[in-house]
């Protein structure tokens, strides 16, 4: 692959000396690093993608129905039509993500081939495999996976996920589950940093997670990949809350395009994520947004999406 690099003679030019390695963990995690502090927005058509990019989204998630509609319609939710994803790719310059069903590696292969920038192996779609998640090491495209607790997060990382998002409860506009999941993940990490070396084996057993990942956590005090938050974010204050709790970026699904004024709300959430510790800015951006999406009480749900995946 040396010919990929410029080998022309003549100072003061330099030339590359090594081959290009694609699809490495560093390259996969690298894109997640670039999305930090940002807002990733669910969009169902090119028009929404444009609104999202105009509002300052760092990436869009292309899907056919936002989670609140999937919840309402019922039935089997699958990967989106490639044509629809291509339509969104064509109008945006920011990264485009798309969802595959849990365990559905053929959908993931199709999404990789389409050139999406991140695959979300998502509990929002109907799982395709009741025991196995996708072997994500087998792919060049990076994966994000949901987690409700630290064990789930570490299992997904051991399968090759390059980004974890707390699951929350998608399509509810209710932040309580996202808070529970974030607190569970980050609370256990804090405890592990206080554990002695013998206790780490017990932690690994309880979390059903690989010992080396638990040992690494104890050393660094953080997941080896970025931790974002999803599921229930509907307001700028919600974004600030989860980022103050320790999320490094947020996914907003139904919260934007099921609200009264998507464009204004999208901008406000972008500004809130960037300035999540600044109450003065949060006051400013929370004013006059129109109605938020209608929320759902968790106790009233027939299906808890967060229970999908293991």
């Amino acid at each position: 692959m040396a010919d990929l690099f410029d080998t022309q003679a003549g100072a003061p030019r330099a030339d590359g000396t090594g081959a290009r390695s694609t699809g490495t963990m560093l390259v996969k995690r690298g894109l997640a690093e670039m999305l930090k502090g940002g807002v990733i927005m669910d969009v169902v058509d090119p028009e929404q993608a444009r609104i999202a990019e105009d509002a300052g989204a760092v990436a869009v998630m292309a899907l056919e129905r936002v989670p609140s509609d999937i919840r309402r319609d019922g039935g089997v939710a699958r990967m989106s039509d490639p044509e629809m994803i291509e339509g969104i790719k064509a109008v945006t310059t920011i990264p485009v993500m798309a969802k595959a069903r849990i365990g559905h590696f053929a959908e993931a292969q199709i999404l990789q081939s389409l050139g999406v920038d991140y695959v979300d192996e998502s509990e929002v779609l109907t799982p395709a495999d009741e025991a196995h998640h996708i072997d994500k090491w087998a792919f060049t495209v990076p994966f994000v996976c949901g987690a409700t607790d630290l064990g789930e997060a570490l299992r997904r990382i051991s399968e090759g996920a390059a980004m974890i998002r707390s699951k929350g409860e998608a399509g509810t506009g209710n932040i309580v589950e996202a808070v529970r999941h974030l607190r569970s993940i980050l609370g256990d990490i804090r405890k592990i940093t206080q554990a002695d070396s013998a206790e780490l084996y017990d932690w690994a057993k309880r979390l059903q997670a690989p010992v080396p990942l638990v040992q690494e956590l104890a050393e660094t005090g953080r997941l080896p990949v970025p931790l974002f938050c999803a599921g229930g974010i509907a307001t700028p204050a919600d974004a600030s809350l989860v980022m103050q709790l320790g999320a490094e970026a947020v996914f907003v699904g139904s919260g934007i395009f099921k609200s009264e004024n998507p464009s204004v709300r999208a901008k406000a959430i972008v500004e809130a994520a960037a300035n999540f510790r600044d109450p003065d800015i949060l006051v400013k951006v929370s004013r006059g947004l129109g109605g938020a999406m209608p929320g759902l009480e968790i106790g009233s749900l027939e299906t808890k999406l967060a229970d999908r995946g293991w």
Binding site: F5, A14, G18, A19, V27, L31, E33, P95, P142
Partner: peptide, 25 residues
Amino acid sequence: QVDSFEADLDVTGLAGGPLHAVFIR
């Protein structure tokens, strides 16, 4: 992103051999 890559680069004037560089989109 599927084209993002790592490579060793010679950088003019930088002592200590090639620099390992990560290119993301």
